[in-house]
Design a protein around this nucleic acid. Structure first.
Lengths: 194, 194
DNA sequence: AGGGTTAGGAACCAATCGGTACAAAACACA
DNA sequence: TGTGTTTTGTACCGATTGGTTCCTAACCCT
């Protein structure tokens, strides 16, 4: 019935997400977005409302892809006990850092700090993602130890903050030296109080 | 010998620092800088080289004022044992968050994530500040327990990541609910392995 | 009081910002 | 083969970006 679009919207969104992830909201200019998405302005504004809208869409995309993947990993009993899964997640992060030299960090963590995103819809999305992560830690902790719910909740939050801290250090380029030590400390939190 | 300047350069720098702290590098526009510093363009470019230079100066200023204050607090035996001082620091952070509703977070932490600052001189300054903090934790830990240096180093890094994580959560507006739990977990890290 | 020197402030700058308008192009369907 | 519909690309928009110029104002010192 009409001219078909020449690009895959999801692929384009994925590229946009990566750019926001790397640069933050303001620093990712429209021009850079267009070039990395490999579309032109016309297509951009037709497919995605405007810059702010595609930023929100990028947050959702991150939630759907990355956070969901992380939560799934933390929930999957095939990855070992709850504590093993949590340590496994940290191990994967550390590996990405000093194997692939990852300096992107975590989009969620970066966006939490990014003031341009703050307020309104974005903040609500971010907080929802944080709670998803927290609950994934919480459930993993509850599962393999007989810990009380309040104790597991507390530990989950401690691990959550250690997680964000590690991602900050990773982005700063310092985690290569520190990641292993940080993870061993997370391991201590997992021992018998979890 | 000449016309005296009508503003206090250190006060102005302090204002600039706070704006960068709150908004990040890009988001803090020159216009906003000028209005919060209460000077005009002429004075600005005469006293401080350009935007990037005053950003670097702001980082130094933060190091001199805030980081130094934190390190001093962590070193001062009048604030209790090493572990008590560390918990005291976290307590102060938590108090700022749910008493004054602090959403600024930590400039160091924010800047570590801010890509606009990344690379070159800024990154070196940031890493130096991180190491100052790490060493302050390390020394506090070494002091009151008879822990080995490697063990204290490891714990210091775990605490460092928990610290940054808490600051991220604080900036996200989530620490009000989580701060106490996070701190109790830090307390666990301080027990006998520190 | 006057000269030397510096700060202050406004006018101006090109470049870039995000966003819009609109015509040409490419398809589906009749 | 049109015809209607949607995508695509480009030209254009005002606003704002960081930065420079340059004249005037204000001061210290002799």
């Amino acid at each position: 019935m009409a001219r078909p679009r020449e690009f895959d919207p999801e692929m384009a969104l994925d590229k946009a997400m990566t750019l926001f992830w790397d640069l933050g909201y303001e620093e990712a200019s429209l021009a850079e977005l267009l070039s990395t998405m490999e579309i032109t302005k016309g297509s951009f504004y037709k497919a995605f409302q405007d810059k702010h809208s595609i930023y929100l869409a990028s947050l959702d995309h991150y939630n759907d892809k990355v956070i969901s993947g992380t939560v799934a990993f933390l929930s999957d009993r095939e990855n070992g006990s709850g504590a093993e899964r949590i340590l496994g997640l940290f191990g994967k992060v550390a590996e990405a850092i000093d194997h692939d030299g990852d300096r992107l960090g975590c989009f969620l963590c970066n966006a939490l700090v990014d003031k341009a995103a703050a307020g309104g819809e974005a903040e609500a999305k971010l907080q929802a993602m944080v709670h998803r992560l927290e609950n994934a830690f919480f459930k993993a902790l509850l599962e393999d130890t007989g810990a009380s719910e309040p104790a597991a909740r507390e530990t989950a939050r401690g691990i959550l903050s250690a997680y964000f801290g590690l991602r900050v250090l990773g982005r700063a380029g310092l985690a290569k030296q520190m990641a292993d030590d940080c993870i061993r400390q997370v391991g201590r939190l997992l021992k018998k109080a979890g």
